[in-house]
Write a protein that binds this DNA or RNA. Sequence first.
DNA 1: TGCCAGGCCCTCTTTAGGGCCTT
Length: 202
Amino acid sequence: MPSANSVIVLDFETTGLSPNMGDRAIEIGAVKLVDGEVVDTFQQLMNPGFRVSSFIESYTGITNNMLTHAPCCEEVMAEFAEFIQGENLVAHNASFDKRFLDDELERINANYSGEFACSLLVSRRLNQQAPSHKLGDLVRHMNIDNDGVFHRALADAQMTAKLWMLMVSDLEQRGIDLPSFALMQKIGKTSKAAVEKLLASQ
DNA sequence: TGCCAGGCCCTCTTTAGGGCCTT
């Protein structure tokens, strides 16, 4: 049973957009939040077993040379499966990260018990004035503290965690005492038009 | 040869199409 007051915010860097097209994870980054505080982190490069494209090298800054010396996906994901055990999960555009998490864990016959919530879907509802909901654009728009590193797994997970906590604070300011993971998850799945009604009913 | 993701959301919608997001 996932813990009520903790959540793990994660981000994958991958060789492309779809595990169904043969793409694999090349880096996982994650932060564990308990009561809004970072209590643990996880970051690891992993070797997908083939060369990544020059686009991915340029996009992420992760080079084939760096991956040559990294442990394989199976080894890293086995460790990561332990890290997320019993925790609920958050990612920016969670459907993307969930596909890779499910695919990589299926390869090693591992699984997880938590559920996903999506910071992108929540942001589209709570930050309707934002010109864009790309993670980098939201970080700039909301003046979220960052070290200027984008498209690396731990850096993106850290920024997503800060965005998540800001949105939790936003809900608290709207009068909701200790917004739960379940409420955040529900906001992401509720139509924009119904969100105000949902919040008013809390 | 040429093409290849998938889920969400909006609208000139629902017998569909296209933009936004993720790498």
